[in-house]
């Protein structure tokens, strides 16, 4: 029982490192030194000490948004296996709960955004929901394809079942799932080519624009929640590309954390070498992910 708990706290502590790694990789490509790798920790510390400012037009929905969002992410992380090792909260069917928890977080953010009555935030909310229509089935079907490989409907079960040998027998399925999950990962975490986390242009934003009105600890919750989401979706990819090795717990965990850093670096590279898609084209990208997932499921079912 201690190990799963240590895993959980490791994830909570290490998650804010991922944006730092992405930024450092981007800075490297841009020929800059970049912000400190621990910048998000400093920002979070600074923000929780600030007094939030609330617009008079907002209601409790606006204040509840960041809290629900963060709470949902904390639950998500509790469900997720760590380096192929089961989580302390795994049960049969937690896969479905995971998808719904992500949905709850999205709903809370979107409602909080709409609550401000700002036209920018309304546009951001509309875009977020529109893209989720494509991203959610892609994500769900990718998980379904993995579940079909054995291990039932529990994430811990699926990834305990996933061994390096699976890459020899089911590599097309796993490749398609990885590709689909990576696209969903970029879209859900509002990274390039779907969104631009660094832009200051309200009219082009998706996720950033929905949180424009939040400040102080609320904003810290949002930033931390975003880091956890990055970790959560990233860890699924890490578990697929680096299945459990049955080595020691320390080695497995270390390798898993390195894989997470590698994924963050890969995001940094993607963001450095390509531009953003036109918003109209984003659904096409997500439909590609959906197609990958469906194909993976069909291949898996046919095995």
């Amino acid at each position: 029982m201690t190990r799963p708990l240590i895993q959980y706290f490791l994830a909570l502590v290490l998650a804010p490192l991922l944006p730092g790694i992405i930024n450092r990789v981007k800075a490297f490509f841009g020929g800059r030194r970049g912000v400190p790798i621990l910048q998000l920790y400093f920002d979070l510390y600074k923000l929780v000490h600030k007094t939030p400012v609330y617009s008079r037009t907002t209601t409790w929905l606006f204040r509840a948004g960041p809290v629900i969002g963060l709470a949902a992410m904390l639950c998500v992380l509790a469900l997720l296996p760590f380096g192929g090792r089961p989580s302390f909260l795994s049960f049969e069917g937690d896969l479905i709960l995971l998808v719904y928890l992500l949905g709850v977080a999205r709903l809370a953010t979107v409602l909080a955004a709409l609550d401000t009555g700002s036209s920018f935030e309304g546009m951001g909310a509309s875009r977020e929901v529109q893209f989720a229509v494509f991203a959610e089935p892609a994500f769900f079907l990718a998980l379904a394809a993995l579940a079909r490989g054995g291990g039932g409907l529990s994430l811990s079960g699926i990834f305990s079942n996933l061994t390096p040998a699976a890459w020899l027998t089911a590599s097309p399925v796993l490749t398609l799932v990885t590709a689909s999950l990576f696209i969903v990962f970029l879209a859900e975490n509002s990274r390039v080519p779907v969104d631009d986390p660094n832009t200051h242009l309200e009219l082009t934003m998706i996720h950033e624009v929905m949180v424009l009105d939040h400040s102080g600890p609320d904003l810290a919750f949002i930033f931390y929640g975003a880091a956890l989401k990055l970790w959560a979706l990233g860890s699924l990819i890490a578990c697929v590309i680096l299945p459990r090795h049955y080595g020691s717990w320390l080695v497995d965990s270390g390798a898993f954390i390195l894989a997470m850093f590698f994924i963050a670096a890969a995001v940094g590279v993607v963001e450095s070498v390509m531009g953003r898609l036109r918003l109209l084209k984003v659904p096409y990208l997500l439909m590609t992910a959906l197609t990958f997932s469906i194909l993976a499921l069909i291949f898996q079912a046919g095995r």
């Binding site: 981007k26 490509f29 841009g30 020929g31 800059r32 390039v192 080519p193 631009d196 660094n198 832009t199 242009l201 082009t204 963001e271 450095s272 070498v273 390509m274 531009g275 953003r276």
Partner: peptide, 16 residues
Amino acid sequence: LAGDVAYLPTASFCGR
């Protein structure tokens, strides 16, 4: 223009 489409290399170079 490169910065607006989130294309990092040209945005960084041209600024300098």
